[in-house]
């Protein structure tokens, strides 16, 4: 019998006191799992569906049509002189990424409680996988948006809306959206683990949240003295920025941006802290 003393690092298991930040090294060690989960999320969702990934496009398109009819034609809300279809598609592009990631993150602990109760891996891998798999869905919607933009420009040679140079900063904005939805989602995931009330609430929250975010109206419709307050809702600025970058139309200022970044950092940081705190023993309470 050959017994060798393993060279692997020591794992010390004991009760954690206070708050700890994320063990990134642990997550790096499980990077293969992260990618497999991303792939699983994406592939498994559409197995045995007739339309498959087309659903990624169908959902925002149908929503856009309904928004165009209801908010633009019936309620006659301003779209800042932009064609309503492009206005809503662009707003939904940012909003959907936020709301999908928020939803998948907030249900990460409870939905996988059975898995977490049986095997250890860094819990944060699951919400992170959601961040990336929703990104794939974002890309599909992004391409759809570009197709619509090009078609519109072909039909209206005089139109001015379109991508500006600032569109190159879009990836940074996506990172902000990812951090934001992850941070807020982790808060809800942690709270849902303890109180199921929040499972009911999170669907409700996200519904109402859209209306306080300039998805169906431009930020310029908000009275100027209230815009800074609106920016405390950290999704406001990214959604508006999307329109500035992709359609060259919108209102943004340094102050608004600073408030939004600060709110994002706060949400992510506290979200990670609370999540890391809850994940240690959450299998005991689900």
């Amino acid at each position: 019998m050959s017994t060798k003393v393993p060279s692997s690092p020591e794992v010390v298991i004991q009760a954690t006191r206070g708050f700890h930040l994320v063990a990134w090294r642990d997550i790096y060690a499980y990077r293969d799992l992260l990618w497999l989960l991303v792939w699983r999320d994406f592939v498994a969702r559409y197995k045995q569906t007739a339309l498959g990934p087309i659903w990624h496009i169908a959902q925002p398109l149908v929503t856009t049509v309904i928004f165009t009819v209801i908010f633009s034609h019936v309620a006659a809300l301003s779209t800042n002189d932009l064609p309503p279809t492009l206005f809503y598609l662009c707003g939904l592009l940012a909003w959907n990424y936020f709301s999908q990631t928020f939803t998948s993150t907030s249900s990460a602990l409870v939905a996988n409680a059975n898995l977490f109760g049986k095997v250890y891996f860094p819990r944060l891998v699951v919400p992170l996988a959601g961040v990336f798999s929703n990104f794939i869905s974002f890309l599909i919607q992004f391409v759809t948006f570009l197709v619509f933009l090009v078609l519109y420009r072909l039909g209206h040679p005089a139109a001015t809306c379109g991508l500006g140079w600032s569109a190159l900063l879009l990836p940074l904005l996506l990172v902000q959206l990812a951090c934001l939805s992850l941070g807020v989602g982790l808060w809800l995931a942690a709270l849902t683990a303890k109180f199921r009330d929040f499972a009911v609430l999170s669907g409700f929250i996200i519904q109402l949240w859209m209306y306080v975010t300039p998805v169906i109206y431009p930020l310029t419709q908000v009275p100027s003295q209230w815009r800074l307050v609106a920016a405390i809702n950290p999704v406001t600025v990214p959604v508006e920025c999307f329109r500035v970058m992709l359609l060259g139309n919108g209102y943004i200022s340094f102050h608004l941006f600073a408030v939004s970044i600060a709110a994002t950092v706060f949400a992510l940081f506290t979200g990670l802290l609370i999540f890391e705190r809850v994940e240690k023993t959450f299998v005991d309470i689900v």
């Binding site: 298991i13 004991q14 250890y120 299998v283």
Partner: peptide, 19 residues
């Protein structure tokens, strides 16, 4: 197997654990 934490006490594992 690190699924939950102890209330007190320690366990030291010197090697990769699979449960």
């Amino acid at each position: 197997s690190r699924i939950t934490e102890p209330t007190s006490g320690t366990a030291i594992l010197r090697g990769r654990v699979a449960s």
